[in-house]
């Protein structure tokens, strides 16, 4: 059982760069052959100012983890839900400041018994402080 006292805990800000090589490797991993993720000229020809990131690339930009110190058994963890909201597209060369907050902790009892739920919210801002995207993930921990 995860204590609800952890709700609101936020990780230290982490500055990351969206790297074009990383975008290409991510596209390779998911098996998306679109050249706009690998070739600047192809991206421009498709109307993009730079190489764009695939729709779920934000998953590969990892903030500092606010779960430090929580006893989580990684063999009992499943991903329940995930949401990304982009206020503007993400491009290679972007610099982002990431923070992640434990937004909620609760338990639910269903067919599979009682499980713990952990909701993590990530905020990505540009260097001027404007929000670029928000991510919200629900992690399920079986007991």
């Amino acid at each position: 059982m995860i204590s609800r006292e952890h709700i609101g805990r936020t990780s230290a800000p982490l500055t990351v760069e969206v790297e074009r090589g990383h975008i290409g490797r991510f596209a390779d991993a998911i098996g998306d052959p679109n050249p706009i993720y690998r070739d600047e000229a192809a991206a421009r020809a498709a109307g993009h100012p730079r190489i764009p990131a695939p729709p779920t690339f934000a998953a590969a930009l990892r903030p500092n983890d606010p779960r430090q110190g929580l006893a989580i058994d990684w063999s009992k963890l499943l991903h329940g839900e995930q949401e990304f909201t982009h206020l503007r597209p993400l491009y290679a060369g972007d610099t982002l400041v990431l923070t992640q907050t434990i937004a909620d902790v609760y338990e639910k009892t269903g067919k599979a018994g009682t499980m713990d739920f952990l909701v993590l919210e990530t905020t990505a801002r540009d260097p001027a402080g404007a929000i670029v995207y928000l991510a919200r993930g629900t992690i399920v921990v079986k007991r």
Partner: peptide, 22 residues
């Protein structure tokens, strides 16, 4: 979820997914 992202970007083009919830 990345496959679903590809479904969308194959359909409308890159950098056009504003929100995706799965």
């Amino acid at each position: 979820m990345a496959f679903l992202g590809q479904l969308l970007s194959d359909w409308v083009g890159g950098a056009r997914v504003r929100r995706l919830a799965v």
